[in-house]
């Protein structure tokens, strides 16, 4: 137990971590992430990679919806823009991954900013409907613009390291490192953004947009910037999906995906970068664990296999409702409460 935190400079006071315990905790997490792929089998690596990609996408969505207060139902479509950009560049131009992934992110940032223009006039539910339109328009274009996107047929992404390279088949183990590195970069960048004037401007717009404007924050510019930044990360996740799954089809980017991501950030914690990651872990692990449980029980309870999918859906719904009732601020807040409890224990006054 510490008696207090005594800083002698603003730099130290503004650091993200203050106590040895906090630093040790971070070191443990890093150690775990580095050791994990060497002990995990393909099933667990696949889960970890899914979590990584979902976390990147969720951080993106959280920047827009959680931090800037602009509700988006277009997440699925923005993932699709990143995925199709990367897939098409690799197929038609033979572009290497180090080019297609950033290109997917940048293209999505531009498209996202364009679909963010209505946010200057629309708020709340009205904006949600406008982004729903973005979702439907983008998916419609993908399924109907056969000449470019291949229409409803799936694309087979090529993983090149250089122009003119042969297709590489990467294992889950190899992708683990790519996804981990990018997820770490996205996390650090997002956390940093919210330590500066840019992040404060985003939050100011969410909390009190008129006051923000009177403080000199250009609402149009910063809303566009929020859409672009958010979509950049979402597109990055999309491009990663394209290369990792190697099959890109519009069916993976429907409105259900948008809603799944909204659930991730609500359960993880709106307006929290780490919450996005907790939410991703929870929402990916929950169905997987339910599956395992069902399989374990199928020997005991006959016919269990058949009803697992229904139970999954029901549990999903119940969990979201429970979170909204008992901890609307999500896992991030729960974790904070636990930390505070032990920090002050046994003198919690």
């Amino acid at each position: 137990m510490e008696s207090g935190i005594f800083h002698s400079s603003y730099e130290k006071d503004m650091a993200l971590r203050h106590t040895p315990i906090e630093k040790a905790r971070l070191a443990l997490v890093i150690l775990f992430l580095l050791v994990f792929p060497f002990v995990a089998d393909n099933y667990w690596l696949n889960l970890a990679n899914t979590i990584g990609v979902v976390a990147i996408g969720a951080i993106g969505l959280n920047i827009l919806t959680g931090f800037t207060g602009q509700i988006s139902l277009g997440q699925g479509a923005f993932l699709a823009v990143g995925a199709y950009t990367a897939a098409l560049m690799s197929i038609h131009m033979g572009a290497p991954m180090w080019l297609t992934i950033p290109a997917g992110a940048i293209t999505t940032a531009i498209i996202g900013a364009i679909f963010g223009i209505p946010s200057l006039r629309l708020k709340g539910l009205y904006l949600a409907i406008a982004t729903l339109a973005a979702q439907e328009i983008i998916i419609w274009v993908i399924t109907h613009w056969d000449a470019v996107t291949g229409g409803v047929d799936a694309l087979n992404t090529k993983n090149y390291l250089w122009f003119g390279d042969d297709h590489h088949f990467f294992t889950e183990f190899q992708f683990y490192w790519i996804i981990l590195a990018l997820a770490a970069l996205v996390t650090i960048a997002s956390v940093n953004i919210f330590r500066t004037r840019i992040g404060r401007a985003f939050i100011a717009i969410r909390d009190q947009d008129i006051a923000a404007e009177v403080m000199g924050i250009n609402l149009f510019k910063y809303k566009m910037l929020a859409f672009a930044t958010s979509s950049f990360f979402v597109g990055l996740a999309g491009a990663l999906i394209a290369h990792w799954r190697q099959i890109v089809t519009w069916e993976r980017f429907t409105i259900e995906v948008s809603i799944f991501y909204l659930a991730v950030i609500i359960i993880g914690g709106l307006g929290s970068v780490s919450g996005s990651i907790y939410g991703a872990i929870f929402m990916v692990m929950l169905p997987a664990m339910l599956n395992n449980l069902g399989r374990a029980l199928s020997g005991v309870v006959p016919g269990m296999d058949a009803i697992i999918p229904f139970i999954q859906q029901a549990v999903f719904g119940v969990v979201i409702i429970l979170f909204l009732i008992f901890e609307p601020e999500g896992i991030n807040k729960m974790w904070k409460n636990i930390r505070d409890y032990f920090r002050l224990w046994p003198f919690s006054y």
Partner: peptide, 14 residues
């Protein structure tokens, strides 16, 4: 806000 100059890229690096 109006007096500060950090842009989004500098912000991401901090």
């Amino acid at each position: 806000h109006v007096h500060m100059k950090t842009n989004i890229f500098q912000a991401a690096l901090y």
